[in-house]
Simulated assay, not measured.
Amino acid sequence: MSHSLHVNRSQSHLKWSKAIKPVLTVDSGAIVTFDALEASNGQVTKSTSADDILKFDIDLADPVYGPVFVNGAEPGDALEVEILDLKPADWGWTAVMPNFGLLADEFKKPHIKIWELPADKPYATFKEGIRIPLRPFLGEMGVAPEADGEFSTIPPLNTGGNIDCRHLTVGSKLFLPVKTPGALFSCGDGHGAQGDGEVCGSAIETSMHATLRLTVRKNHDWVASPHYFEAPLAPIPGFEDRGAYAALGINSDLLEATRDALRGVINYLTANKGLTRVEAYMLASVAVDLKLAEVVDMPNFGVAATLPLNIFDDQ
């Protein structure tokens, strides 16, 4: 049964704008449910092939659902978004798309993986011997920007949007700076799992039924960009910490250091786990965390691409 305060799949938009009329008005503290289609906006199905990816229309991607007007929200406040429950669909997808991703210049051909996301298992299988623990989250959560006009839902903004923060799982709270009366909150872009960085350009993309509590926090002008409280993660049986393998990228250009780190972990996976380069690239997108290891010893930066070893049956 849907919650009485509900935003459905037909109530979507593809731009952030304070001019979009709200589909729902609620009081502070209200619990709202959202049914969000996956990030392709229905372009990817269980039968989608790699060749179909060449027809992908980026202008239709990353729909968000809403907006919701929250009574009492005014500029200078923050909107607290508490993630109460997230239910992904029974399938998802990860794709390499031409001209998109951290190593787009090296991975020019389209590829796609369709995942099964069984409700009775806390993981999805990448291939034999490699399992990814499922920790669902919404990649898109945001409020309307202050400026006039329309803004794409693809790049993140100071008001939120496509922040793709995998730490916003059930029990976490996101704080967004209110820039227009009512905040005008929308969300979407469900993920079953992702590494910090989403390096190939997609996570495990999946439709999502989300239950969120929206609360106005008055006089929070110090929240000038998305802030969040990360809830403790419940352990998943079979995925106890077994350490990690990491590759460091060292470069005077932070972006190139990041790319070097990713190349290093891809090389590890192809040399030691029997994966093709594109398999390693997609696996990195859903499982590898990018971390700033060193930023003060100029002129070089150190970036780590960290691969958890508990995803392998045989580490």
Rank of each mutant, 00 (worst) to 15 (best):
G190D: 01
N158A: 11
E230I: 12
H227F: 13
M282I: 11
P156D: 09
L275T: 06
G249M: 11
D196V: 13
M208N: 01
L262W: 09
P232D: 04
H167C: 10
G182R: 01
G201S: 09
K218N: 02
E240F: 02
L254P: 00
L275I: 06
G195N: 08
I236E: 12
P181M: 06
A234R: 14
F239D: 11
T159Y: 06
F185E: 14
F151G: 10
T206W: 01
R217V: 05
D241C: 00
T169K: 15
V178T: 08
S152R: 07
L174H: 03
R166N: 07
F229E: 15
A183Y: 03
G171R: 05
R217L: 12
L233F: 06
E230K: 15
E150Y: 14
A247Q: 04
P235L: 10
S152K: 05
D260P: 00
Q194H: 02
A183C: 07
L254N: 00
D189Q: 05
Y228F: 14
D196T: 12
V216I: 04
I250R: 11
A234G: 14
L157K: 07
C165N: 14
V199H: 04
E279T: 12
L214N: 08
G192P: 02
L184G: 02
R259D: 09
T153D: 13
V216G: 04
T169D: 04
Q194N: 09
L248T: 07
S172R: 12
T258E: 11
P232E: 04
